[in-house]
Simulated scan of single mutants.
Amino acid sequence: MTVREKIEQFERLTLIKGAALSSQTKGREKEEILDDLRTCYMVDRDRILHCKSFRRLKHKTQVYIKTFGDHYRTRLTHTLEVSQVARTIAVGIGLNEYLVEAVALAHDLGHVAFSHVGEEVLDKFLSQGFKHNEQSVRVVKTLENGGKGLNLTYEVLDGILYHSGFANGIANAQTLEGQVVRYSDKIAYVNHDIDDSIRAGLLKQEELPKDILKVLGRTNSKRINTLVRDIVETTSYNIKKNIYKVCLSEDIGKALENLRDFMFKKVYLGERLRVERDKAKFVLSHVIEHYMKYPEEMPEMYKIIVEGEGLERAVADYVAGMSDDYCLNTFNRLYMPKFVIY
Rank of each mutant, 00 (worst) to 15 (best):
R55S: 12
L150F: 05
D35G: 03
G147I: 08
S184Q: 04
G165Y: 11
E276K: 13
T77I: 07
V156Y: 07
L176E: 01
L13Y: 04
V85K: 06
I89T: 05
D261W: 00
A102K: 09
D123G: 05
G92T: 09
M322A: 03
T153A: 13
R75A: 13
V340E: 15
I224S: 05
E8P: 08
I212C: 03
E297Q: 12
T67H: 15
G110A: 06
H71S: 11
I160V: 09
K17L: 14
V82Y: 10
V215Y: 03
M263D: 00
E32W: 00
D193M: 14
D196H: 05
S115Q: 13
L202W: 00
E11Q: 15
V100S: 07
M292D: 08
K66G: 03
S164E: 09
Y41S: 05
A320I: 08
L122T: 12
A200W: 02
E250H: 07
E250K: 11
R4W: 11
R55T: 08
F262I: 11
R229I: 03
E29T: 06
G253S: 09
R274A: 10
D35W: 00
L176R: 03
K214A: 15
Q179R: 03
H107Q: 12
D123I: 04
Q128L: 14
Y183C: 01
L15K: 05
T67S: 15
P209D: 04
D261E: 12
V275Q: 12
I160S: 01
K30L: 08
Y237R: 15
H50W: 05
V246L: 04
D196Y: 01
K210R: 14
L328M: 15
N332L: 14
L13W: 10
G94W: 03
V112G: 04
A106S: 06
V283Q: 00
H50E: 13
A167D: 07
L13C: 11
E101Q: 08
E307H: 12
E31I: 08
R4M: 06
R28Q: 12
M292A: 09
E119R: 08
I194S: 04
M336Q: 11
N133R: 09
G110I: 11
G270R: 05
L208K: 01
V215T: 10
E307P: 07
G146H: 10
F10R: 07
L49P: 01
L126I: 14
L152P: 04
T235S: 03
V306A: 08
V100G: 06
L99R: 13
K58E: 15
A86E: 00
V180Y: 02
I160C: 03
R182W: 05
A106H: 07
L95E: 02
H111K: 12
H290I: 00
L227Y: 07
E276Y: 10
T234W: 05
I187K: 09
R45N: 02
F68D: 10
K124L: 10
Q174G: 02
G308C: 07
L202A: 06
A171V: 06
Y294W: 08
I89E: 02
E307S: 15
I288N: 08
